[in-house]
Design a binder for these strands. Structure first.
Lengths: 186, 186
DNA sequence: CCTCAAATACTCGGATCCGAGCGATCGGAG
DNA sequence: CTCCGATCGCTCGGATCCGAGTATTTGAGG
């Protein structure tokens, strides 16, 4: 069980038992799908895995009309503990991650000076838009819930801004000739 | 073909044809395994996928001693084009990514004020170490190759520093009571 | 009252990921 | 010359991921 979506599920069930579809719906409508990749397929796999580990359990299966049955899952005691341990571990220990942009930057040379500047500038535009979007929805959310519950937006905004600053700086440096372009692509 | 490792392979083959094991070795020894997740299993899958797409092709299979055959792959013309397009796209278009820390921060509340501060401080320590490590190896590399070829380390360092700053700031705010802890975990 | 888009709720199978092996061979210590 | 650990080079299969598809139901608009 590595998938953080599992953590999200535990977190939700802490409040009240739910069936998978409701989990997805809640997650999305709280905007948590910006922090967790929630796809239906994975969700059902994750739920099955959580059951296997004994962290959640089926509470009842209801049938409303002629729709497929809904199986409602609730947290076990072990699941509650696991949730806290999980959050704690992910906060404490930085994981080696491999953002795609990091990979791309490793081969920035391939674009040539002009191409690199152009691509970087376009990224910068998109990042700017993205920061604004984050700020906007964060501000909106602050009307509804305590700041602690939407603190991740502040983190996302900060990180995006940091990237934006770096991208603009490098684009500038290339244009100014401050970042030399060797002949041979490595 | 989504895996950035595919891009790394194309990038390597731009220099000279190689067999998979040599690709992994080269990648690791240039320290590119900090930007690409290189695991043997995936590598062979990725190579197969690149062949399927017609971006690389088997050039020859050599047998040295009684060891397993080595199949040497080289870039096709299509592969060269694809490489540039790939880098360009990843630079231009920010991808929605889901760093584990972002997920964890979404549930920071679960740790309680004291627990959160403690965990954040530990993360801060590790991040500091990580920045130093990046800087150190970047400085070392600068003796060997042009700056453009190790620019990704500058990006990594900046992003790690940004995270570090945020983590310390939030820990400080919690301690100072500037970030309220509602009763009920959401 | 009818239609059609949206929401409800999940399944399925192909694609991908990736660590644990496996069977060599090489290099150096004794 | 012989043993052993490191390196070479790859395969395999289980786990996971996830989008597309399925089948129903509700609700708003005409």
């Amino acid at each position: 069980m590595k998938n953080p979506l599992g953590m999200a599920v535990l977190g939700l069930l802490l409040e009240s038992p739910l069936h998978p579809h409701a989990m997805a719906a809640t997650l999305r409508d709280r905007g948590m799908d910006r922090a967790f990749k929630v796809t239906t397929g994975s969700l059902y796999d994750v739920v099955r895995a959580l059951v296997r580990e004994g962290w959640i359990e089926a509470r009842e299966t209801v049938k409303v009309g002629a729709r497929p049955e809904r199986t409602i899952y609730g947290l076990t005691a072990a699941g509650q503990e696991e949730f806290t341990r999980w959050v704690d571990r992910l906060v404490r220990e930085p994981q080696a991650e491999f953002p795609k942009f990091l990979s791309a930057v490793s081969y920035l040379g391939a674009l040539g000076p002009a191409g690199a500047v152009e691509a970087l500038r376009e990224r910068a535009d998109r990042l700017r838009a993205s920061v604004e979007e984050i700020r906007r929805s964060h501000a909106a959310a602050l009307g509804e819930v305590p700041r602690l519950f939407v603190i991740e937006a502040e983190y996302a905004a900060r990180m995006t801004e940091a990237e934006l600053a770096w991208v603009e700086e490098v684009a500038g440096e290339i244009e100014a000739g401050g970042l030399a372009w060797p002949e041979e692509g490595r």
